[in-house]
């Protein structure tokens, strides 16, 4: 949940990247880390296995400096996508202010996308959060690969809330910053009532 620190004149929000294993959540964070000027970013950490699969979470702190008298900070997390890590995902969702759901556009990953979305709804509920009203955007990642599902089908199958969606090729940065910017705006708009 957002922390409004009136002593330090600081607002801190938590954004979580969710989605099935290998959908590109860590790639999103790595691109953001590479794109941001040093003044806006802190140290990125990744708790991963030897084969670079996320084991617990990745973390990237962003600090946009003082705007309107308050320093605005965002802490970006990814969850481990593999099905067995559901307890870890639950922990990372604790206090989330906004979510970027990263779906894999490939035809043979559609069942995984659907399972991950369902898993997210359940895990949010366990943290007292509601998938129906938390700030959420969706990224249809891997649009550069063959054998992908048409965007219309992804929208129909996964975007039950009609939230903003972005076609993505995360390793090239396509759809990465626009998804981040949109979820940040949604979080701040909700925070401001």
């Amino acid at each position: 949940m957002t922390m409004l620190n009136y002593a330090k004149k600081e607002i801190i929000c938590k954004i979580v990247y969710y989605g099935p294993g290998l959908s590109g959540k860590t790639t999103n964070l790595k691109f953001i880390y590479g794109k941001m000027d040093t003044q806006y970013k802190g140290k990125m950490i990744a708790i991963a296995t030897e084969t670079e699969r996320t084991l617990f979470f990745d973390f990237l702190p962003l600090d946009f400096g003082k705007i309107k008298g308050f320093t605005t900070k965002f802490q970006l997390y990814t969850v481990p996508g593999q099905a067995i890590y559901t307890n870890s995902r639950k922990l990372i969702l604790k206090g989330a202010d906004g979510i970027v759901f990263v779906a894999d556009s490939q035809i043979d990953r559609m069942d995984d996308n659907k399972s991950s979305l369902k898993d997210m709804a359940l895990n949010l509920r366990e943290q007292g959060l509601d998938i129906r009203n938390i700030p959420l955007v969706m990224q249809w990642n891997k649009r550069d690969l063959p054998n992908i599902v048409p965007v219309e089908k992804l929208e129909e199958t996964l975007n039950f809330r009609k939230v903003p969606t972005f076609e993505g090729v995360a390793h090239k940065g396509i759809g990465v910053m626009s998804a981040l910017k949109t979820v940040i705006k949604m979080v701040l708009n909700k925070l401001g009532g």
Partner: peptide
């Protein structure tokens, strides 16, 4: 809720 005047607007971002 935070006061809107304390938060960056869409334009600020």
């Amino acid at each position: 809720k935070a006061s809107k005047k304390d938060l960056p607007s869409d334009e600020d971002l």
